[in-house]
Amino acid sequence: MDKPVNNRAWLLVAPVFLIVAFSAILPIMTVVNYSVQDTFGNNQFFWNGLGWFQELLDPSTELGGRFLDALWRNLLFSAIILAIEVPLGILVALSMPREGWKVAATLVIMALPLLIPWNVVGTIWQVFARADIGLAGWAINALGIDYNYTGDPLAAWITIVVMDVWHWTSLVALLCYAGLKSIPDAYYQAARIDGASRWAIFTTIQLPKMKRVLLIAVLLRFMDSFMIYTEPFVLTGGGPGNATTFLSIDLVKIALGQFDLGKAAAMSLVYNLIVLALCWVFYTVMTNAGTERRHEENPA
């Protein structure tokens, strides 16, 4: 809908432009500058053109292969945690109480993991899952299962996935709960009168009404998991080997570990573009779903 035009609005937005300029545009320009150069330390830079980009996008080179491996790891990780957290979140939301003092209590408990800083989550799990002194790690080994996340890639993956599920399922559940709460009672009554089974109520009433919040939950969890850094860095440091080296971890390794600023800059730009592209895809999907909705509720 058209809004009244008021030029003074620009003045109000100006500070935001300034902040964004200093916090985003200038650093990105610096990165762009690095990405076309090479350095061997001493703050000396050499022109390298699009060399890094060519290498990066060619899987046969060391850098390209490494990039592609990390990208696959990221996609796999996002797919796994979405496949677990979304259904689990829905399940949790469905079993949450609807009224009474239990609602407040549940909400507080659910919100707890969300309030813990990322690096603390990593540290908690690093200790918790240790095979020698960690409660979970020790217990699993006591059951006769050989479990050591520092040595076994599979164990490392499982630990990170479990950690992420523990940390973030609440978010999905809370969003779904909000969606469920917005369904009028009449729908449930009608379904009972129609003799619908529990499953039919879920598929015909609850799921369709949760669609929009689910879309938001999926978007948030996807973006967040795709950019995961702190927790696996604290927990496994990317190991064992490169088993849990995600793009962000690899990026830091190249930039700060090897001080290959040019490679790292090129890599972060491509990474950034991938994130932006995926963002755009989700945004389009979501706004399309939104406009369909708005036509139904014609404002006239």
Partner: peptide
């Protein structure tokens, strides 16, 4: 169009 017309009168929409 009642509500749309009212929004125009109010200046909520141009």
């Amino acid at each position: 169009g009642k509500t749309s017309l009212m929004r125009l009168m109010a200046g909520l929409d141009a």
